[in-house]
Each structure stands twice: as structure tokens, then as C-alpha cells.
Amino acid sequence: MPSNPSPLAEVTETREHVHAALTRTSTGKEDLRELESGLDSLQSDADRKHRIDWSRILLPVAALVVMVLIWQFYVSLGVKRRDLVPGPLDVVAQMGVLWSDGKFQQSIWTSLQRGVVGFLISVAIATPVGLLLAQVAPLRRAFGPLISGLQVLPSVAWVPAAIIWFGLTDATVYFVVFMGAIPSIINGLISGVDQIPPQYRRVGTVLGASRLQMALQVILPAALPGYLSGLKQGWAFSWRSLMAAEIIAVGGTIGFGLGSLLDQGRVLSDMTIVMAAILLILGVGILIEPAGLRAHRKATPAPPRPPGRQHPLTRPVQSQTHRKSPTAAVGLLPLPAANA
């Protein structure tokens, strides 16, 4: 803001110790230190205690209890036959039976192990490919639409082809998991690199970073939030694909997973097994998700405060969780960060 051009008004003021913005305003080094430390404490937020927010745990649990109660209530009305719509207690009892059979443990172990191994291999494949596509523009132009398309294609569509190519083996299951997870992870990594503010690269240049240093010290950490949400989505896709594959491809050397358990329930027309399997699949999904989320939140810094700018790292995709986090300055974002 340019000052008022008339100098007369300022001249008439007292000549001695005028603390105007035009001159030195502090009296010495100690004074300056004191002023700054006062301002610092005024301007930085009081130390936020990282207490456990119980409502985050209790409310979902309460919602779950309500849902189970509604379920039980519906069943006790007796609208449908009990063997078609079993109650929560029947399903819990069935789980107990499955546990003592060993099927419970076996199916969870088989599926979880496959999901995790498949996911890790997907990460190992998708990360270098994603970095390559993010950095080499022509490659990205060429393959970008294809990869986005693959992300939309339900990976279950690959099951018939996989069965023909690989037979009823684990290879079929893994293939389907890869087709589900890899495009998501690649896309996440690419958009993570895209969202790096250009300023960061300039800072890197000014600080004298070499190409390699730039990649390792600047680009990779800056792309981490996008990469992690890609990983999260990648996990969700591999878990879904895995279940689909296990339901469709049963037998051969394919082991007994949660999907197989579900299919067995269908074959036996035993709704308690079907419901138990669905709940287990859901449960594993819910339990694995927060583990990924925690890493995500840790790596995603809260938006900085200058108003009028949206933090470039806040991703619209799946950003609900960290927008709600107490550190995010939601009120200062001029535009909704996400209409998720």
C-alpha cells in the first residue's frame, strides 16, 4: 500500500522517538527479541493438546450398535423366514462354529495374505511406472488415458480371461488384484507429482539441488500425500478385486479365502455363513483402512494459513478425513476444498 503522498502531515508530528513504520521501531537487539517473542506467542496457536477425541470412536460404535439393534428388531418382527434373514445372534453363533472348524481363521488368513502380497507387488510395479509417467511427458500423454480407463474398468472383468490364461490357480487371483490396484496407484502418484507447487522446485533449484537430489529430497516427499491416497485407493481396489475373484474362481489350487467362504454359503443356501462372510470381509476392510489413513494423515501437513490460497496438497479425492482433522483450517479456505 503506497503511503499518502502528502509529506506535510508526517512532518508536523513530534520529531523525537516517533515509532512510525518509516523508521526503526525497536530500540535494540534485546528489545527486538522481546517484541518478536511476544508476537510469536500471540500469533501461534496455543499448544494444542493431542487428546484422544472420544467422539471419533464412540459415535461410530454407537452407530454400529444402532444398526445391529435395528437388524435384530426387524428379524424379531418375523416378516421373513429365519433361515432367509438370520438375526445378528445367529450370525455370531455361525461365526463361532466357523471358528471351531478353523474355517474362520483359514479364510481370513488366506485372503489377507493374498491381499497384502498382491498389494505390495502392485506397489512395487506401479511406483516406478508412475514416476516414469509423471516425469516423461510424451509417455504420459500416450498412456495416461489408458491407465485412467483401466481404473474405471472393474477388475472383475479380467476374471474370465485370467481363468483361461492361468487356470484355477493363485496366479488368477493375483492377476485380478494387480489389474485393480496398479492403475490406482499409478494415478495417485502422477497426481501427487502434478500437485507439487512449482515454488518447491524453484526453491530446490535456488538451493542448488542436483537432479537426483531434487527427485529424492523435494519431488518424492512433496508427492507423498497424493501417492498415499493412491495407495489407499489401491488397497481398496485390490481387496475388492480379490473378493470378486475368490467368489467367481473356486476350486483348483486356489486356496480357501473369504470369498470362497461366501460362495460356500451360497452353495449350501446357508444365510448365516453368507452374512458371516460379508461381515468378515467388511471387518477386515475397516480394520486395514485406518492403518493406511494414519500414515496418510501423518504425511499430509495441515494447510498453511495464508488466506485466499488453497493448500496445494489438499487433494479433493478422499479428503473428507483430513478436512475434518482438528489441525485443518477449514474456515479459512475460501472455496470448498472438496465437494466429496
Binding site: 503511503s3 512532518v11 508530528e13 518509516l22 523508521t23
Partner: peptide, 13 residues
């Protein structure tokens, strides 16, 4: 100009 606001103001003008 560092210590005299009047002088500094004049120059600013």
C-alpha cells in the same frame, strides 16, 4: 532517515 520519521515521510512522499 532511519531515525527521523519526518524526513523519511518526506522522502516517501
Amino acid at each position: 532517515h532511519r531515525t527521523d520519521a519526518g524526513l523519511a515521510g518526506q522522502l516517501t512522499g
